[in-house]
């Protein structure tokens, strides 16, 4: 565990020192024991700015080992700047194998998406969280939000959904859609589209959420019920598209809209690049 990275010798294994990793692991254990509860931890300065995934990186650094295979996605894509640089960071400081294939990964660090390919037992999904407190926009006082969580007083969250229906005719929130974890804590699922919320429910994979700026870790253990909040007469719904993916033809995945020329031509493609490629590979092989 404690061996120095052979490549440059300048850092401890996985960048963080062992005491810090122990502290983060303790926070993770507590978070797993109390699903949805935000555990404070001593967040460290990381070699990238807040908002770029410092929370997720610290969680990944604390749990990664040399046998792991790491996948990093940003908005579903493996090839965006944030994903590429975090993947290279761990390849260098933790000497782990990296992959873009969801099925092969043991740890998937993600920003803003959950992979389309269903996750399995033993996989860990690490979320980068900008604002861990789901009640923050409704109640600015931290002391008060903690009390509301402690006493399970969640009327105010429902008020915000009511307000959304009153103003827009439907629950207009499309990302960071609040969820109730294990019937006890309301949790921010990080800014994933609400399309991904059903994937969190009773997922066989372990979900860890790290917020670097606010120094909070929370978790959803495998097979834990995660319910998206709604009203009886305005049930939770996910986004739908009239188009299918222009590249792989999928009708089940989350689509990004892309403008392809100056005439306003647009194209809908899968946001999950790995899923899209796998589908195209299978289709080619079938031909």
């Amino acid at each position: 565990m404690t061996e120095i990275n052979a490549k440059d010798g300048a850092y401890n294994y996985a960048y963080l020192d062992e005491q810090t990793k122990r502290m983060i692991r303790r926070a993770i254990l507590k978070a797993v024991a109390v699903p949805g509860y935000q555990v404070p931890f001593g967040g460290r300065e990381m070699p990238l700015p807040y908002g770029w995934g410092t929370g997720g990186i610290q969680v990944t650094a604390a749990i990664i080992g040399q046998d792991d295979t790491l996948k990093v996605i940003d908005q579903g894509a493996d090839d965006t700047t944030n994903a590429v640089s975090i993947r290279r960071f761990f390849a260098r400081v933790a000497d782990v194998a990296t992959t873009t294939r969801t099925k092969e990964a043991t740890i998937i660090q993600t920003r803003h998406r959950v992979p389309e390919t269903p996750l399995g037992e033993g996989q860990i999904l690490v979320f980068q969280v900008p604002i861990p407190e789901p009640l923050r926009m409704l109640e600015p006082r931290e002391t008060e939000t903690r009390t509301l969580h402690a006493l399970s007083e969640y009327g105010v969250m429902q008020v915000s959904l009511y307000e959304s229906i009153a103003r827009h005719g439907r629950i207009a929130k499309t990302y960071n859609y609040p969820v109730m974890v294990n019937g006890r804590y309301i949790m921010s699922p990080s800014p994933i589209p609400k399309f991904d919320n059903p994937k969190l429910d009773r997922s066989p994979a372990l979900q860890l959420y790290g917020a670097g700026r606010e120094k909070r870790i929370y978790a959803v253990p495998p097979h834990t019920p995660v319910k998206s909040l709604d009203f009886d007469d305005h049930p939770f719904e996910i986004e739908t598209w009239e188009q299918c993916c222009a590249l792989c033809g999928s009708r089940e995945s989350f689509l990004d809209e892309m403008i392809v020329d100056d005439d306003g031509q647009r194209l809908f493609v899968c946001s999950d690049t790995d899923y899209c490629e796998r589908r195209r590979d299978t289709a080619e092989a079938a031909e």
Binding site: V159, Y162, F231, D232
Partner: peptide
Amino acid sequence: LRMGVSAGANIGERLMAVGARHYGDIR
């Protein structure tokens, strides 16, 4: 009052706090 949300939401808050989950009824 909650100044940032509509009158309906203000009146409905107590109902929702004790478990009302039917938008039409609350309204």
